Amino acid sequence: MRANKITVAALALAAGLSLAACQSDGDATDRSDSSAAPATTSSHGDPGPGATKGSPASGGSAQGTAQASAGKGSGEGQGANAGTGSGKEGKLGKCRTDELQVKATDNTIDGDPGGTVVVEFTNGGGRDCVLSGYAGVDLKTSAGTLSAKRTGQQASRIVLKDGGSVAFGITYPINDSGGSGVRVTGLVVTPPDETKSVTLDWPGAATLPVTDGSGSPVKAGPIGSAGQGG
Score class of each variant (00 low, 15 high):
1 M>K: 04
1 M>I: 02
5 K>Y: 06
8 V>A: 07
11 L>S: 05
13 L>F: 07
20 A>V: 03
30 D>R: 09
30 D>T: 10
31 R>L: 12
32 S>T: 13
32 S>N: 07
33 D>L: 12
36 A>Q: 08
41 T>Q: 10
42 S>F: 00
47 P>S: 12
48 G>T: 00
48 G>E: 03
51 A>S: 11
55 S>R: 07
56 P>C: 04
58 S>V: 06
63 Q>F: 06
65 T>V: 03
66 A>G: 00
67 Q>M: 10
70 A>G: 07
71 G>L: 03
74 S>M: 01
77 G>M: 07
78 Q>C: 00
78 Q>M: 06
79 G>A: 15
79 G>T: 11
79 G>W: 05
82 A>G: 01
85 G>I: 15
87 G>Y: 06
92 L>T: 04
93 G>Y: 00
93 G>C: 03
96 R>E: 14
97 T>L: 08
97 T>I: 08
97 T>P: 02
98 D>V: 12
104 A>V: 11
112 D>I: 04
113 P>A: 14
114 G>T: 14
115 G>D: 05
121 F>C: 03
124 G>H: 09
124 G>V: 08
127 R>Y: 05
127 R>I: 06
129 C>T: 04
130 V>T: 14
134 Y>P: 02
138 D>Y: 04
144 G>C: 12
145 T>F: 06
147 S>A: 15
149 K>R: 15
154 Q>A: 15
156 S>C: 03
164 G>D: 15
164 G>W: 13
166 V>Y: 01
171 T>L: 08
174 I>Y: 09
178 G>A: 12
179 G>A: 15
180 S>R: 13
180 S>G: 15
181 G>Q: 04
181 G>T: 04
182 V>L: 08
186 G>Y: 12
190 T>C: 13
201 D>V: 07
204 G>T: 05
204 G>W: 06
205 A>C: 05
205 A>G: 13
206 A>T: 14
209 P>T: 04
209 P>A: 08
211 T>Q: 12
214 S>I: 05
214 S>D: 09
217 P>K: 03
219 K>G: 01
222 P>D: 01
223 I>H: 01
229 G>L: 02
230 G>S: 03
